[in-house]
Amino acid sequence: MPPLSSSSPPSPSTRDSVVAALRAAGCVFAEEEAELILAAARTPGELAVLVDRRAGGLPLELVVGWAEFRGLRIVVEPGVFVPRRRTGFLVEQALVQVPDASVVVDLCCGSGAVGAALASALGPVELHAADLDPAAVRCARRNVGGQVHQGDLFTALPDDLRGRIDILAANVPYVPTDEVGLLPAEARDHEPRTALDGGADGLDVLRRVATEAPAWLAPGGCVLVETSERQAAAALETFAASGLAPRLAVSEELYANVVIGVRE
Rank of each mutant, 00 (worst) to 15 (best):
A156L: 05
Q150E: 15
G145V: 00
D166L: 04
N171S: 14
Q150W: 00
P158Y: 00
L153Y: 00
P176W: 11
R142F: 07
H149F: 11
D159V: 14
A170E: 05
G163K: 08
V144S: 02
P173Q: 07
D133Y: 00
D152M: 03
F154E: 01
N143M: 08
V148I: 02
A135M: 13
V172A: 13
R164K: 14
D152R: 13
L168N: 07
R138W: 10
L157T: 01
L168D: 08
D133S: 15
T177W: 08
H149T: 06
A156F: 00
G151I: 03
L161F: 07
A135L: 15
T177A: 10
L161M: 09
P158V: 06
L161T: 03
D133F: 03
F154W: 13
A140H: 07
D133W: 05
V144Y: 10
R138H: 14
D178W: 13
L157W: 01
D166P: 03
N171K: 04
D178K: 13
P176V: 08
R162F: 08
L153H: 00
R138T: 14
H149I: 06
H149Q: 02
F154A: 02
Q150K: 12
G145W: 11
D178H: 14
L132T: 12
V137M: 06
D178E: 15
E179R: 15
Y174C: 03
N171F: 03
D159P: 11
D160P: 01
G163E: 10
D133A: 14
L132R: 14
T155Y: 10
V175A: 03
A140T: 02
P173K: 05
A135D: 15
A156P: 00
L153S: 08
R164N: 09
F154H: 05
D166K: 05
P173D: 07
F154T: 02
C139F: 04
D166G: 08
I167H: 08
V148Q: 03
Y174D: 04
A136G: 12
L168A: 09
P173G: 02
R164M: 07
R138V: 12
